Computed example of a mutant assay.
Amino acid sequence: MPDERLLITGAGGMVAGLVRERMRRRGRVVRLVDIKPLETPAGDGEESLTGDVTDRALMARACEGVDTVIHLGGLSRESSWEQTSLVNITGTQVVLQAAQEAGVRRVVLASSNHAVGFRRVDEAGADGIPADTTTRPDTFYGVSKAAIEALGSLYHSRFGMDVIVIRIGSCFPDPLPLGPRGLGTWLSPDDAARLFEACLSAESPGYQVIWGVSDNTRRIYSLTEARALGYEPQDNAEVYADRLADVPESPGSEYVGGGFTTALLGIYNPP
């Protein structure tokens, strides 16, 4: 029998794809769930299931014998309210309910900076904007992330489950796709794995909201809360700064949510 069984939802997505290999450990089985078959099939120390996080029967099976859930499944971009609320909000409730009924002791939920996207960058204090600053979502996507934070709080308070919410800045192989903004928001793949490991090993965290970010020179997000759980970031986006020196700031740069705070997405004026 393994010492630990970890469930990762959204296993075919960007963040899971970046940390999957990094999360392998002797004595740990990683169970992978995604709506589509994985491009890289389950290997040694892995199991896989294919299906939707809104499928209650599937998630009940997925949570059997699991110690911790890292819930990364869901829509990662702006979409219609109907799709966003179904997949991100209802899907998270399904995952939390399945975890609670299976006796899972800890769930890590992937939130986003877009839950507080209309916070101004100049609100940052000495160590950045506090991780538990109240929500100011910038999109339907941001609203869905604010809602899953509330669901996590409910399942902790009602059932005593440890729930750690990570407000992820931007997790890519490098910060270049986001332009200058990425120099502040980047969470490197290695640091993402370090952060998840800290969430898995922290003793009795209760309900916590933390930022998911590397120790970037231009960071505007607090690391105080994540460090209290044992996270020690080792990467800094500033090493990419020269490659972005001539790239102008994008619209919305005065806000945490960047371009998501502008009208560029165009979904609020349907035909």
Rank of each mutant, 00 (worst) to 15 (best):
P180D: 13
H156T: 11
Y255E: 03
S222P: 04
V143P: 01
D122W: 14
K145Y: 09
R20E: 07
F260P: 01
D246F: 02
S144F: 07
I8K: 10
T135Q: 06
D55H: 08
G266Q: 09
G212K: 00
V30R: 09
A147H: 05
R56A: 13
G160V: 10
D235R: 04
S153T: 07
G212H: 14
G10V: 13
L195N: 00
E78P: 01
L176I: 15
H71L: 13
G128N: 04
S214Q: 02
R158S: 13
F196D: 07
D191V: 15
L265Q: 07
A99C: 04
Y207I: 04
D190Q: 15
T84D: 11
A99I: 06
P248L: 02
A228F: 01
G258H: 05
G13S: 14
V121W: 14
G258P: 05
V104T: 05
G43L: 06
N113Q: 13
A193R: 06
Y141H: 00
C199A: 14
A42K: 02
T217I: 06
A115N: 10
V104G: 03
T262H: 00
E249N: 09
D246W: 02
G13N: 11
Y141E: 00
L32W: 06
K36E: 15
R120I: 14
G169I: 07
D67S: 09
A150C: 09
L183A: 10
V66G: 00
G12D: 06
L86G: 01
A146W: 01
G259I: 14
E82C: 01
L264C: 03
I168F: 13
S250I: 06
T40R: 15
S112I: 12
L200A: 02
L49C: 00
D52R: 10
Q97R: 08
S222Q: 09
F260L: 07
F196L: 15
P180C: 10
V15G: 13
R136V: 02
H114E: 11
T9M: 09
T50S: 05
A62F: 09
G230C: 02
A202L: 02
V165A: 09
Q83V: 11
G27Y: 01
S76D: 12
E21Q: 08
T84Q: 08
M1I: 11
